[in-house]
Design a protein around this nucleic acid. Structure first.
Lengths: 112, 112
DNA sequence: TCTTATGCATAAGAGATTTATGTATATATT
DNA sequence: AATATATACATAAATCTCTTATGCATAAGA
């Protein structure tokens, strides 16, 4: 993924959130959407993305639907019910993480 | 470190920032300070902390000063000049990370 | 006396990502 | 027509960071 290695550990959160918002996306589309939303700041690599999608599917958080467009393969992923719940968890963990880091880095903030 | 694996990659930032603020700290003190500042939310493990301190020292970002207090060893670390510069970098990377994640997770935010 | 706190350290394993490949079709460029 | 770029998937080896499990040693509290 990106430059700074702070991004390690946030790929799952990103994938789930994008799928929550767009209902149905395929791998390549996710890489492009992230690049677009972050103005090129963050580039998800295929080597990280595809194994991650497979894992989320294996865990029952995502469903797949294979289609063919212009004679090229596409695998559309969407959240399962369980995936929707896990998305909520991941997002609150992210908020918690940000709050905690603010407490450490900016002593004006206090964790409650 | 902590529970959620979002914290991967942020240990260095945490160490550097605490040293910037306190000028001089030893390992155990860092673990306690983090626990205190985050109300127990984040616990730095020794297995992560000590190798990280050694690495930062090897890279020239930290200086060490060994002392003995109550017959027990203490290794005080402080930022080198280079370490001070790197702290600024790490902190801005953290802000950048947070901003980018907001853009992904909360579409109202836009990365500029 | 036994447990907890203080204080350091390292090694094995796990987990996530990077880097390097590989395959294949469609489109744009020279 | 040939070549490069974009689209679209995939995996394997290496790397990096952290967790878990140890180990050693002194001080203080129950």
């Amino acid at each position: 993924m990106g430059n700074s290695n702070l991004y390690k550990g946030s790929l799952t959160t990103i994938i789930l959130k994008l799928l929550e918002e767009h209902h149905k996306m395929y791998g390549y589309e996710i890489t492009q959407k992230v690049k677009e939303l972050t103005k090129g700041e963050l580039k998800i690599t295929e080597g990280a993305l595809y194994p991650s999608l497979h894992k989320l599917e294996a865990e029952g958080l995502l469903d797949v639907e294979v289609t063919k467009v212009d004679n090229r393969l596409r695998k559309y992923y969407k959240l399962t019910e369980q995936g929707t719940k896990e998305t909520v968890n991941k997002l609150s963990e992210l908020q918690e993480y940000i709050k905690t880091m603010q407490a450490l880095v900016n002593p004006k903030f206090v964790v409650k």
